[in-house]
């Protein structure tokens, strides 16, 4: 369905995406995981034909650069934050994008109802809350019932409540056989939505693993999300690794799986290394029993874990 082959995108001398390869079969659902700047968004932009790149990306056999318009017919895209004319009414926005997708007589009421936005048709886009905007973006992405959904950190700008509602909505939708590729750095989203996780670091896809394996590695009981200064993060990772933790970069912080009874251990180690932790969050460790998340090994054709050098 989606085939990404040796894709490299440079900004000047810096390779934002470097030799990335990834293939999604129909119905597959892959999370792109990695720190900010790892190349997730750039890879998605390449996939949408927004950026030029070296290598090949095809969607259903259509080259996204040469036949981008055709290829994008198959794709519903939800950005991190909906950027659209604020003065437009919600229904107008839906109609506008429906037409671009070739739907002659769209009914915005139904489209909006699907994402729980009924009754907001005549509001202006700017009057919507962040969560409602993302729902609108999702409604637009779902117009024309695309076979592929591409989501770029869609919950990043939402608060905790908005986030969980939105994930529940996505969970509902993911059961319908769509192919999904999404960038995320929230384990609960990955657990809920992804079959596989492609980990990105410095523009490379470093590993592709079934979600279960990935989460097993990521957490042993619960996950600490530690926020600190950027330049402190590599040292923190080194220090934690040295004592047996498996930390990984994530967004503005690092994620460390900890035993539920020893949640303070990383703080002590970091304090010894004179690293100041600005803030932290305790995330529940996702389990494989999460409804909606299919067993990662369900796909016969997929190797259970594929760690790239």
């Amino acid at each position: 369905m989606i085939r990404i082959e040796h894709v490299t995108r440079r900004f000047g001398r810096y390779a934002a995406v470097n030799e990335a390869c990834l293939e999604l079969t129909p119905g597959d659902s892959v999370a792109l995981w990695g720190a900010n700047g790892a190349g997730k968004t750039t890879l998605i932009r390449c996939l949408l034909g927004l950026l030029r790149f070296k290598g090949n990306i095809s969607i259903n056999g259509l080259d996204v650069l040469r036949r981008g318009k055709q290829a994008r017919m198959l794709v519903g895209y939800v950005p991190q934050e909906l950027a659209f004319h604020d003065e437009m009414k919600v229904a107008e926005a839906v109609v506008f994008f429906a037409r671009l997708k070739g739907i002659g007589h769209p009914d915005p009421a139904i489209a909006l109802g699907n994402v729980g936005l009924s009754g907001h048709e005549s509001k202006r886009v700017r009057e919507l809350s962040g969560g409602m905007k993302q729902r609108l973006a999702l409604a637009i992405a779902l117009l024309g019932d695309p076979r592929i959904l591409i989501l770029d950190e869609v919950t990043a700008s939402l608060d905790a409540v908005g986030r969980s509602e939105f994930v529940r909505l996505l969970e509902r939708l993911s059961g319908e056989g769509r192919t999904m590729l999404f960038a995320s750095h929230r384990p609960e989203e990955v657990g809920a939505l992804a079959r596989r996780v492609a980990e990105m670091s410095l523009g490379r896809i470093t590993s592709i693993a079934p979600t279960r394996d990935f989460l097993a590695r990521a957490s042993t009981g619960c996950v600490l999300h530690l926020l600190m200064r950027d330049d402190a993060r590599p040292i923190a990772i080194r220090e934690l690794r040295a004592v047996g933790f498996d930390p990984r970069l994530n967004g503005e912080g690092i994620l460390v799986g900890v035993h539920p009874d020893r949640k303070a251990a990383p703080f002590r180690i970091l304090a010894d290394a004179s690293i100041a932790v600005d803030d932290f969050e305790i995330l529940p460790a996702p389990t494989q029993a999460t409804p909606g998340a299919p067993p990662a090994t369900g796909d016969a054709g997929q190797p259970a874990a594929e760690v790239l050098p």
Partner: peptide
């Protein structure tokens, strides 16, 4: 639940995108 906006059953092959002038008109109108 299903998304009711389907203009085409999903088993069919790729839907053709709107013609250029249609898109131009849509965007121009907006």
């Amino acid at each position: 639940m299903s998304v009711a906006l389907t203009a085409h059953p999903r088993d069919l092959s790729i839907p053709a995108p709107p013609r250029a002038w249609r898109n131009i008109l849509t965007i121009a109108g907006r």
